[in-house]
């Protein structure tokens, strides 16, 4: 049986209705339901409400279980809504935060080397992954289209910074495969739901390029766990995608 290391789980209340895990205990119950052993966790309420300078809730909640690893949102440094980039990255490392999240649609900014360059310079120096999720708060993933030009620009400008693209759009394979081919530092989740997607990425780019993200509470984690359980790949490939890739990435943060 595969145990997953989930790259994206939201913790805390939601103002959008539907499922939510308001507490760490509730999230751990959800994780148990789907065989998710560990997860990179973000503050769902802060994500929706636009709170970018207070991280006490997520740090305290994740402090209750070693299975919950905190992440925080990042913004263009020019607005000074957050600490200066060097201070922010130092804060992350001091508090066990090994990946940060850029959500350019939900938080309305362009995520390229011009807007995010000063921060990405700091992230790259630490090999800290930038998790990129461009889906809107109420957007359906079927027709979602990430800002491919911006992603390419950023990944090429910072080749030693891992970029994890979440919510690639379900039908964006032609753009995603091009990005994977051109930018070895880019990884992607399983939201490109095309038939044979996992098998094809593994065949052409190797198993190190995929991670599992459940997108809870926006989506049902079973969409992704089921797929990976049945994918026609070897056991070591399945283990890489299910969690080992993410584990290695976080272990490489300096």
């Amino acid at each position: 049986m595969v145990t997953f290391f989930d790259c994206e789980m939201g913790l805390g209340p939601t103002g959008l209705g539907g499922a939510a895990a308001p507490t760490a205990e509730a999230l751990l119950r959800v994780m148990g339901q789907y065989d998710i052993g560990s997860a990179l966790v973000y503050d769902r309420a802060a994500h929706e409400a636009g709170v970018f300078d207070r991280f006490d809730f997520i740090l305290e909640a994740c402090g209750t279980s070693h299975r919950l690893l905190p992440t925080i949102p990042v913004l263009p440094p020019a607005t000074r809504e957050q600490m200066p980039p060097a201070d922010l990255v130092a804060f992350c490392l001091d508090h066990g935060i090994k990946a940060v999240r850029a959500c350019p649609t939900a938080h309305n900014f362009i995520c390229d080397r011009h807007s995010m360059g000063r921060l990405c310079t700091q992230l790259q120096a630490r090999r800290m992954p930038l998790i990129h999720s461009s889906i809107g708060l109420r957007e359906h993933p079927y027709k979602h289209q990430p800002p491919w030009h911006d992603l390419r620009d950023l990944a090429l400008a910072f080749p030693d910074m891992p970029v994890i693209v979440l919510h690639t759009g379900m039908m964006q394979g032609r753009n995603l495969f091009t990005l994977l081919e051109e930018c070895p530092n880019v990884m992607a989740d399983l939201s490109c739901a095309s038939f044979q997607y996992v098998e094809e990425v593994v065949a052409h780019f190797g198993s190190a390029r995929l991670v599992m993200a459940s997108h809870f509470p926006a989506e049902d984690p079973g969409l992704y766990t089921t797929w990976l359980n049945y994918a026609k790949v070897d056991a070591d490939v399945r283990a890489n995608i299910a969690g080992d890739n993410l584990r290695r990435l976080l272990a490489a943060v300096v």
Binding site: Q33, Y34, M170, A193, S194, F195, Q196, Y197, V198, D220, P221, G222, L223, Y224, T225, T226, W227, N229, Y230
Partner: peptide
Amino acid sequence: VHLGFGLGMIAY
């Protein structure tokens, strides 16, 4: 899309 897109929502 893959078959898990139907089964996954039900199995768990």
